[in-house]
Protein backbone atom coordinates (compact mmCIF):
# COMPACT_ATOMS: atom_id res chain seq x y z
CA UNK A 1 0.00 0.00 0.00
CA UNK A 2 1.25 3.48 -0.83
CA UNK A 3 1.90 6.03 1.89
CA UNK A 4 -0.60 8.34 0.18
CA UNK A 5 -3.37 5.74 0.61
CA UNK A 6 -2.68 5.43 4.33
CA UNK A 7 -2.77 9.23 4.60
CA UNK A 8 -6.20 9.30 2.95
CA UNK A 9 -7.67 6.35 4.79
CA UNK A 10 -6.54 7.47 8.26
CA UNK A 11 -7.07 11.20 7.50
CA UNK A 12 -3.54 12.25 8.36
CA UNK A 13 -2.46 15.85 8.07
CA UNK A 14 0.67 16.04 5.91
CA UNK A 15 3.06 18.68 7.24
CA UNK A 16 5.99 18.32 4.84
CA UNK A 17 5.98 19.83 1.35
CA UNK A 18 7.36 18.20 -1.78
CA UNK A 19 8.01 14.85 -0.17
CA UNK A 20 7.01 11.87 -2.31
CA UNK A 21 3.96 10.04 -0.92
CA UNK A 22 4.18 7.15 -3.40
CA UNK A 23 6.53 5.01 -1.30
CA UNK A 24 5.22 1.53 -0.69
CA UNK A 25 4.55 0.87 2.99
CA UNK A 26 4.79 -2.73 4.10
CA UNK A 27 4.47 -2.34 7.84
CA UNK A 28 4.63 0.03 10.77
CA UNK A 29 6.60 0.50 13.94
CA UNK A 30 5.35 2.21 17.08
CA UNK A 31 7.99 3.57 19.46
CA UNK A 32 9.06 6.76 21.19
CA UNK A 33 12.60 5.58 21.80
CA UNK A 34 15.13 6.39 19.11
CA UNK A 35 17.45 3.50 19.97
CA UNK A 36 14.54 1.08 19.73
CA UNK A 37 13.63 2.40 16.29
CA UNK A 38 17.28 2.18 15.24
CA UNK A 39 17.35 -1.44 16.35
CA UNK A 40 13.97 -2.66 15.20
CA UNK A 41 12.31 -0.53 12.51
CA UNK A 42 12.49 -1.93 9.00
CA UNK A 43 12.80 -0.50 5.55
CA UNK A 44 9.30 0.27 4.27
CA UNK A 45 7.86 0.90 7.75
CA UNK A 46 5.90 3.95 8.65
CA UNK A 47 6.89 5.13 12.13
CA UNK A 48 4.23 6.11 14.68
CA UNK A 49 5.44 8.25 17.60
CA UNK A 50 4.86 11.14 19.96
CA UNK A 51 8.48 12.27 19.63
CA UNK A 52 8.97 15.49 17.69
CA UNK A 53 12.66 15.96 18.43
CA UNK A 54 14.89 16.87 15.46
CA UNK A 55 16.69 13.52 15.70
CA UNK A 56 13.61 11.60 14.54
CA UNK A 57 14.36 12.65 10.96
CA UNK A 58 17.92 11.33 11.03
CA UNK A 59 16.76 8.04 12.55
CA UNK A 60 14.00 7.65 9.95
CA UNK A 61 16.36 8.45 7.14
CA UNK A 62 19.01 5.99 8.35
CA UNK A 63 16.46 3.20 8.66
CA UNK A 64 14.78 3.82 5.31
CA UNK A 65 11.56 4.89 7.03
CA UNK A 66 9.65 7.02 4.52
CA UNK A 67 7.06 8.51 6.80
CA UNK A 68 6.59 9.51 10.44
CA UNK A 69 3.12 9.79 11.94
CA UNK A 70 3.09 12.16 14.93
CA UNK A 71 0.22 11.38 17.32
CA UNK A 72 -1.91 13.36 19.79
CA UNK A 73 -1.78 16.48 17.57
CA UNK A 74 1.71 17.30 18.71
CA UNK A 75 3.13 20.43 17.11
CA UNK A 76 6.17 19.83 14.91
CA UNK A 77 8.86 22.48 14.79
CA UNK A 78 9.66 24.18 11.45
CA UNK A 79 13.29 23.04 11.74
CA UNK A 80 12.15 19.40 11.96
CA UNK A 81 9.91 19.78 8.90
CA UNK A 82 12.68 21.46 6.92
CA UNK A 83 15.11 18.67 7.76
CA UNK A 84 12.48 16.08 6.85
CA UNK A 85 11.91 17.73 3.48
CA UNK A 86 15.66 17.68 2.81
CA UNK A 87 15.85 14.01 3.74
CA UNK A 88 12.72 13.03 1.84
CA UNK A 89 10.87 11.84 4.96
CA UNK A 90 7.15 12.67 5.06
CA UNK A 91 5.78 13.94 8.38
CA UNK A 92 2.08 13.54 9.12
CA UNK A 93 0.12 14.57 12.20
CA UNK A 94 -3.04 13.04 13.69
CA UNK A 95 -5.18 13.84 16.72
CA UNK A 96 -5.44 10.08 17.41
CA UNK A 97 -3.38 8.25 20.02
CA UNK A 98 -0.55 5.91 19.04
CA UNK A 99 -2.75 2.91 19.92
CA UNK A 100 -5.59 3.98 17.65
CA UNK A 101 -3.41 4.97 14.68
CA UNK A 102 -1.57 1.67 15.00
CA UNK A 103 -4.92 -0.09 15.06
CA UNK A 104 -6.15 1.64 11.93
CA UNK A 105 -2.89 1.17 9.99
CA UNK A 106 -2.79 -2.49 11.06
CA UNK A 107 -6.27 -3.03 9.61
CA UNK A 108 -5.17 -1.43 6.32
CA UNK A 109 -1.94 -3.38 5.97
CA UNK A 110 -2.91 -6.85 7.10
Amino acid sequence: MKLGDIINDVSLDVKTCNVCLDSVITGAYVSDLLSDVMANAKDGNVWITLQTHLNIVAVASLKGVKGIIIVNSRRVDEAVLKKAEEEGVAIMVTPLSAFEVAGKVYQLLK
Binding site: D32, L33, L34, S35, H53, R74, R75
Partner: peptide
Protein backbone atom coordinates in the same frame (compact mmCIF):
# COMPACT_ATOMS: atom_id res chain seq x y z
CA UNK B 1 5.94 25.77 28.99
CA UNK B 2 5.32 24.83 25.35
CA UNK B 3 4.23 21.25 24.80
CA UNK B 4 7.05 19.32 23.20
CA UNK B 5 9.87 21.71 24.06
CA UNK B 6 12.64 19.99 26.00
CA UNK B 7 16.32 20.33 26.74
CA UNK B 8 16.61 16.76 28.03
CA UNK B 9 19.62 14.78 26.81
CA UNK B 10 19.15 11.65 24.74
CA UNK B 11 19.73 9.19 27.62
CA UNK B 12 16.82 10.74 29.52
CA UNK B 13 14.58 10.40 26.46
CA UNK B 14 15.58 6.76 26.21
CA UNK B 15 14.19 6.27 29.72
CA UNK B 16 10.84 7.64 28.59
Amino acid sequence: MQEGFSTAPEWVRELG
